[in-house]
Design a protein around this nucleic acid. Structure first.
Lengths: 106, 106
DNA sequence: CCATTAGTTCGATTATAGTCGAACTAATGG
DNA sequence: CCATTAGTTCGACTATAATCGAACTAATGG
């Protein structure tokens, strides 16, 4: 059974987090997870090949944003909201709010 | 007299902002500006060659984070706090708060 | 008008990231 | 035990970004 590295909250780095979220695809994944949790990777693919999606999830995990747990055949992803909140209070909420401001049509 | 492009608040893009701030040097610049404003580039160089610094300022301007105004020989930089606030309320504050959490020694 | 200061621009080099197909792995169902 | 499903890993290629020296520009001071 495959296991993933998930950094401890105290080891999360802001630059790594911001970098992970600066990619529109990854930000979209985080937003979808925020709306519906946990989810496997498949419904979040958005037409990309599996290898690309897998790469983006690895970046999100390394930043500490997403936790992936193996549940049978599927890998369930969720946001690490509590750990993120303990490390950087209010940050994720502010970024998610900014993201939803952005895609309101002008 | 040289002029710079500064995007309108409504044209600022979240991914561009997060990307700009995901670089530790650029984040440090933003933090220093938040603490003391406006400032020329020179005191923010941190030992880097001028061409690199100039590049990083260009990224910050393009993201909408920094405004640069020519004042005689020096170029004065400031944060575009109001515009940022109007576009993404609370975002800059949350990121600055996260940055200061991060460099508190464990 | 010349030197100085502050910063930009250019061009080359290097490093880091994204993208994708193909082969792989681990768990499940028949 | 074989096929299927879900996702990873690998390797190659491409694209984007960082870095830095050198030449440039624009404003000021002497």
């Amino acid at each position: 059974m495959k296991q993933y590295d998930h950094p401890l909250a105290q080891d999360m780095q802001l630059s790594c987090l911001l970098y992970a979220l600066s990619d529109p695809f990854r930000l979209a994944v985080v937003r979808k997870l925020a709306a519906c949790q946990p989810q496997p990777c498949a419904p979040l693919q958005g037409g990309r090949p599996k290898s690309s999606v897998s790469h983006h999830f690895a970046v999100l995990r390394k930043a500490g944003l997403v936790r992936t747990e193996v549940v049978g055949v599927t890998h369930m992803n969720s946001l690490r909201e509590q750990e993120l909140e303990s490390r950087f209070p209010g940050l994720l909420a502010a970024i998610l709010a900014a993201a939803s401001v952005e895609d309101v049509p002008a």
